[in-house]
């Protein structure tokens, strides 16, 4: 029981730090990386919530595909150096 809470807090801290980093990173690629971290952590939280299937889908669709799509977007809209 207690361990659940410890896990949750650890994941929540990573989650918050990650999403703040997404918003504040100077480089776009770093943002995409932190987004992936956030999404993977989120799937850990789903497992704590006993929703393994959603966690799996989150990993496959979100953590797997979305950052890659963002990387494509970044590469295709690059102009000299990033913001």
């Amino acid at each position: 029981m207690e361990w659940d809470l410890v896990w949750f807090l650890a994941l929540a801290i990573i989650e918050i730090v990650g999403s703040v980093a997404v918003v504040l990173s100077r480089k776009l690629v770093h943002s995409a990386f932190w987004l992936a971290v956030t999404l993977i952590t989120m799937s850990g939280i789903y497992i704590l919530l006993k929703s393994e299937f959603v966690a799996l889908i989150q990993l496959l669709v979100y953590a797997g595909a979305v950052p890659i799509l963002f990387l494509f977007g970044i590469v295709l809209t690059r102009r000299g150096e990033e913001e």
Partner: peptide, 12 residues
């Protein structure tokens, strides 16, 4: 692009 990422965080 960062704005779109932020949208993703909201959706999450």
């Amino acid at each position: 692009i960062i704005v779109l990422m932020s949208v993703e965080i909201i959706l999450n």
